[in-house]
Design a protein around this nucleic acid. Structure first.
Lengths: 146, 146
DNA sequence: TATTGTTATACTCTATAACTATA
DNA sequence: TATAGTTATAGAGTATAACAATA
């Protein structure tokens, strides 16, 4: 029985991502956030805010769940809801000043720790990886819609 | 401000994996399994079983959670616990015949659907991707321990 | 003493679907 | 009628830590 050649690709993809996650998650939790909450904070960082719909699309968190996640960020005073001016149904989610401060303090630290993983890679290799992963991402994205 | 070159690599990695997951998850749920449960079934497939410790290491599910996940697979009659003969503290988890049948029926179908994503890649490209992702996985794995 | 797996707690995420209000 | 977000429900995963049995 011949193993299909894409299977190792998927396995390595999953393991690489899981290694990334299992490094990230404890660091995120040490900040008092869950991975989902961090995802929202990172998505809202350096923006003027966005609607639930947009936030849901970027983070792949469904609307029912998103309400709860944003509730918890509001309870921690890291985010706020603002009514949209152009659409009465829509709420804009923004980081509060405290949320921005957290983002600015934490995000670079988060990245600089993980940067150490890339010391063995040249710029050209990283460019290659980016391009290849981009193709892979697109290919995997297309499957879902076909 | 210069963007660090590894950031796009991580972003593409996360998106590629999430695209894979968001295709997979609905298919898995349509089988009456959660992603964690499927992960266990896929890990136990084509093996004679393994201890909770080993299963936890392979799937990155912690022991407390694993007890519950295996409970649910047992309730569905897809897996069973067997006392280890060599270590009185250890339980071996195995697929039942029903679990094996599910694995054999479902796993190839799951893969063959996703195989369509790879029609645009040559064998050489897939080999490249595998090698590159392998390096990335190792690099990201090492970060967690340093 | 250390390890394997279980139990207990409290919280968070998840899918799903009904619901309100706006468009 | 359709869309944006909320609410409700039930189930499942999560971290954490205490625990029993065995090594």
């Amino acid at each position: 029985m011949i193993q299909k050649p894409f299977i190792p690709v998927l396995r390595e993809l999953a393991r690489a991502y899981q290694n990334f996650e299992s490094y990230s998650a404890p660091h995120i939790r040490s900040l008092g956030l869950t991975p989902s909450q961090f995802d929202i904070v990172a998505t809202l960082g350096n923006t003027s805010g966005m609607s639930f719909k947009e936030l849901g699309e970027k983070t792949l968190i469904t609307k029912g769940t998103l309400t709860g996640v944003v509730d918890r960020l509001e309870a921690k005073n890291l985010a706020r809801r603002v009514a949209s001016q152009s659409d009465g149904r829509s709420q804009i989610v923004q980081l509060t000043r405290k949320g921005e401060a957290l983002f600015e303090r934490v995000f670079p630290a988060h990245l600089s720790h993980i940067e150490r993983a890339f010391t063995g890679f040249s710029q050209a290799e990283m460019d290659d990886m980016e391009a290849m992963l981009g193709r892979l991402r697109e290919a995997l994205s297309a499957v879902g819609t076909k």
